[in-house]
Amino acid sequence: MPVGGLTGPLALLMPGQSAQYQGMGTGLYRDVPAFAGVMDEVFLLMGPAGDELRSDWLAPSPRVPIDHADRSQPLLFAIDYALGRLLMDGGLRPSVLLGHSIGELAAATLAGIFDLASAVRIVQHRVGQFATVPAGGMAAVAASQAQVQPHLRSGVDIGAVNAPRQTVIAGAVEPLRTTLDALRRAGYTWASVPSTVPFHSELLRPVAVAAGPLLASLPARPPQIPLVSGYTAGYLTDAEARDPGYWASHPVHPVLFWPALTTLAGAGPQLLVECGPGIGLTTLARRLPQVRSGHTEVLALLGPPTDPSREAGQLAAAAARLGMSPP
């Protein structure tokens, strides 16, 4: 597949929490019928909640902010999945998938581990459980995991390792505040992650426990497309794909995105395509030695957050670079 002079396999990077922004995907929904059709599949499977979600998502002034987990989580899943389906229905076959947080569930659905109806049930159950979690937040610290760890207060955990010097922490409001104060005094800078839920922390242990019975009842199959796990940083095994405990633990365990991305990049020259809103994952991928040397290329399907009316044009330009007709 020639892209900008590079020939190599296609890897899809599927973003999760913090990639959301107001209006994301709404232009595609209005202007790209194939995208709207897949989104409507997801909304239909959600039942009445899907009707409400779609209506609020498309509203000029949404009732629920996009950063609320009731909006960000199901919409990120749906948009990631719909964009992946567009590529695959257009004839592109990814060689590997890597999702960040909720993005891994979208990747698992594209890989055939879960059917779409089962994946939607998992998303809805998880989101419903977030109301039981104490208020908290997340922050991205410009430091390594080893540098951050000594400053963590009780109730604050490592939520993600996104890059060698980008570590996300998560916890309840007050312990997170005191941890961030300690990090500031130690000379580290940080930025808040848009989330009112402390994803990937022990505070979400009840969410994981509650998901166990549901996941045990759903069929899960070996991946039909290789998937690099954002939680083990290795290729997902058939046993892990079938293990309800693996999927139930996602809200608690840290996302090891950089180690997983390093594993993926080690497979040789390829094209890393961000299959979801924004450019967060391709921005991280640009730090890879393989990208800096020009042996691996990156492409974001939608580019930076923009006016929704421009989304169809951005997607068409990306499709052209991928050698496929505009969706």
Score class of each variant (00 low, 15 high):
residue 71 R to N: 03
residue 61 S to E: 15
residue 77 F to V: 04
residue 74 P to E: 00
residue 55 S to W: 10
residue 23 G to Y: 13
residue 103 G to M: 06
residue 39 M to W: 14
residue 28 L to R: 00
residue 70 D to T: 14
residue 31 D to I: 12
residue 56 D to A: 06
residue 83 L to V: 09
residue 103 G to V: 04
residue 14 M to A: 13
residue 22 Q to W: 13
residue 15 P to H: 05
residue 49 A to E: 15
residue 34 A to V: 03
residue 30 R to H: 08
residue 58 L to H: 13
residue 52 E to I: 10
residue 64 V to K: 02
residue 90 G to P: 02
residue 75 L to C: 00
residue 56 D to L: 09
residue 98 L to D: 06
residue 93 R to I: 07
residue 22 Q to V: 13
residue 94 P to Y: 07
residue 57 W to P: 02
residue 17 Q to F: 05
residue 40 D to L: 09
residue 66 I to D: 00
residue 36 A to F: 12
residue 35 F to C: 05
residue 60 P to R: 05
residue 99 G to Q: 06
residue 24 M to Q: 10
residue 52 E to Y: 13
residue 82 A to N: 07
residue 47 G to M: 09
residue 88 M to F: 08
residue 12 L to H: 09
residue 8 G to L: 05
residue 25 G to C: 04
residue 21 Y to R: 15
residue 84 G to S: 04
residue 7 T to F: 13
residue 79 I to F: 08
residue 50 G to L: 02
residue 76 L to N: 00
residue 25 G to K: 00
residue 76 L to R: 04
residue 36 A to N: 05
residue 14 M to R: 11
residue 26 T to K: 07
residue 36 A to C: 05
residue 101 S to D: 00
residue 28 L to E: 02
residue 85 R to Y: 10
residue 100 H to F: 10
residue 10 L to W: 13
residue 67 D to C: 04
residue 10 L to S: 12
residue 40 D to K: 07
residue 72 S to P: 07
residue 14 M to I: 11
residue 10 L to M: 12
residue 101 S to K: 01
residue 42 V to H: 13
residue 58 L to Y: 14
residue 46 M to Q: 09
residue 13 L to Y: 13
residue 35 F to R: 07
residue 66 I to S: 02
residue 50 G to K: 10
residue 54 R to K: 15
residue 28 L to V: 06
residue 62 P to N: 01
residue 38 V to R: 15
residue 79 I to R: 11
residue 41 E to M: 07
residue 64 V to G: 02
residue 13 L to T: 12
residue 98 L to S: 03
residue 53 L to D: 00
residue 8 G to Q: 11
residue 71 R to S: 01
residue 69 A to H: 14
residue 91 G to N: 06
residue 52 E to V: 15
residue 10 L to A: 10
residue 54 R to N: 08
